[in-house]
Design a protein around this nucleic acid. Structure first.
Length: 467
RNA sequence: GGCGCCUUGGCGGAGCAGUUACGCAGCGGUCUGCAAAACCGCGUAGGUGGGUGCAACUCCCACAGGUGCCUCCA
């Protein structure tokens, strides 16, 4: 497939480095609250990329991390459980939001079973091992408040700033404020943060034999967990564009310092942001929505998934209730057609089969073209237009629904089950009333069905749909 | 201050130098006891100013507006 690679700033032909297996790592959430829908959009794109790779025929090993120890998890776990030991509070607190995250991932149609989740706190020993190695190599140094990565040392042999194209020689870094950290150089970043009063901490024996209790920095955990599970170099690293610098730049530095392999990840795939009122959604700006906000307004999480897929992953897209409504209606239309499979008799049509398989192929081609979801949706729209109550090849319809569910994860089959036998009885009863021109009874039965969430549409034969 | 990106119809959103994107909403129609759904049809584009081309929404330049990153960030 063709895929834009941030590392080379160009669209490249993608193939796995080894055999037929794609090794893919996605930067996951910091579990201190609900993910906002911008976070979720990033994971929807990653999920969709994995689906496309699988559809091509690759095996995919997909790893995602939980950042379950950092300033915010420590701060908020202490607020939530002030009487517990810091480590106990942290574990209780993050475990809760891990469950919330997995639940919301599944709700938006991300296949969590296809992802291996790993946690920073489960990998402390390996993190310490890499830090020790960096210290021994001279790529890191010990300071009073922690251990830092030395970018100046790294730059003696390697280039720093490949992904972000930031010129670190220029004297234009006005926002640097070095006062509060004990760093040699402003750009240096923490590998290990020494314990402060009241913080959870792990013992860490340094090369000189001394102990520095503390916790890992943010960047090092991804370097360690990706390589530990996927080996180095692996195929694809995903994340939002905001992670290009410093997070991914620093991961590269940590994992390629010294005599380690020259490459970290072959491809870097970054998605653009979901915007609110034209501006980036962020927790610090308090301009974000969460999935429960959407559900509260009676939208399905899958409406949101479709909204995300309607724009290309490298284009920023604006979120509004109006655009979500549009996605909802489009999905409703698709579900209405999907529901035909329970209520029309098979009307075999070679032409329909041929046309659908052709459109499915075109949709998949679009996906393989740098994950062009807007165009894939166009082909699926065209395919849905082929089906009518009086002309439906059930095999062709099934082919279409299966393809969409596999490629886009919209769960069309799962969300459109058959209605109950009692519902069918009510529909029959209403038909009889209509034949007898008993409109009062007919309308009353229609209301009855509506209460059960079923809409009835009188054509040559009545067609139902879930409201 | 540095480095980028974006600007398409009422809304969302693609491709493409010359031929309908697509969706949502709107309008008209078929169907219908009514309604709804479905289907058919219709209209509305390419920030501004230059340039190159037989031809530009599509390439180049300038300007305007917006926005992202420059160690919290998907």
């Amino acid at each position: 497939m063709r895929l834009y690679n941030t590392r080379t700033h160009s669209i490249e032909s993608f193939a796995p480095l080894q055999d037929n297996t794609v090794r893919m790592y996605s930067c996951g959430p910091t579990v201190y609250n609900h993910a906002h829908i911008g976070n979720l959009s990033s994971y929807i794109y990653a999920d969709t990329l994995r689906r496309t790779l699988k559809a091509i025929g690759y095996q995919v090993k997909h790893v995602m991390n939980f950042t379950d120890v950092d300033d915010k998890t420590i701060r908020d776990s202490h607020m939530k459980y002030p009487d517990d030991e810091p480590m106990v509070a942290l574990t209780k607190f993050t475990a809760h939001y891990e469950r919330v995250f997995l639940d919301e991932m599944a709700q938006v149609g991300n296949s969590v079973d296809d992802v291996t989740f790993v946690k920073a706190t489960d990998n402390i020993a390996d993190i310490q091992q890499l830090i020790r190695k960096l210290l021994e190599q001279g790529d890191a140094y010990v300071a009073d408040d922690g251990i830092y990565f030395s970018i100046s040392e790294y730059r003696k042999t390697r280039q720093y700033g490949q992904l972000s194209h930031i010129d670190f020689n220029a004297a234009d870094r006005q926002r640097i404020n070095n006062d509060e950290y004990d760093k040699d150089h402003a750009h240096d970043f923490a590998l290990w943060k020494a314990q402060k009063e009241g913080e959870p901490a792990w013992d860490f024996t340094l090369p000189d034999g001394s102990n520095m209790p503390g916790r890992p920095g943010w960047h090092i955990e991804c370097s360690v967990m990706s390589v530990k599970n996927l080996s180095q170099p692996f195929d694809i690293h995903t994340g939002g564009v905001d992670l290009i610098f410093p997070h991914h730049e620093n991961e590269i530095a940590q994992s390629t310092a010294g005599n380690q392999p020259a490459e970290y990840s072959n491809f870097f795939v970054h998605n653009e942001h979901l915007l609110v009122n034209g501006a980036k959604m962020s927790k610090s700006a308090h301009n974000f929505y969460t999935l429960p906000d959407l559900v509260e307004r009676s939208f399905s999480p899958l409406d949101f998934r479709l909204l995300v897929l309607q724009s290309h992953y490298r284009s920023a897209t604006n979120f509004s209730w109006e655009t979500l409504e549009a996605a909802k209606n489009r999905r409703r239309h698709w579900c209405n057609v999907a529901e035909l499979r329970h209520q029309v008799s098979d009307n075999p049509s070679e032409e329909q089969i041929d046309k659908v398989s052709q459109l499915v192929e075109q949709a998949q081609d679009a996906m393989e073209n740098d994950l062009d979801t807007p165009n894939a949706l166009k082909y699926f729209d065209e395919a849905f237009d082929l089906f009518k109550p009086e002309q439906t090849d059930l095999g062709a319809l099934d082919m279409l629904l299966t393809a969409i569910d596999q490629l886009l994860g919209l769960k069309l089959i799962e969300t459109t089950p058959d209605i109950a036998p009692e519902d069918y009885e009510l529909i029959d009863e209403r038909q009889q009333a209509r034949h007898a021109k008993d409109w009062a009874k007919s309308d009353q039965l229609r209301n009855e069905l509506a209460k059960r969430g079923i809409q009835i549409k009188d054509g040559p034969t009545p067609i139902w749909s879930r409201a």
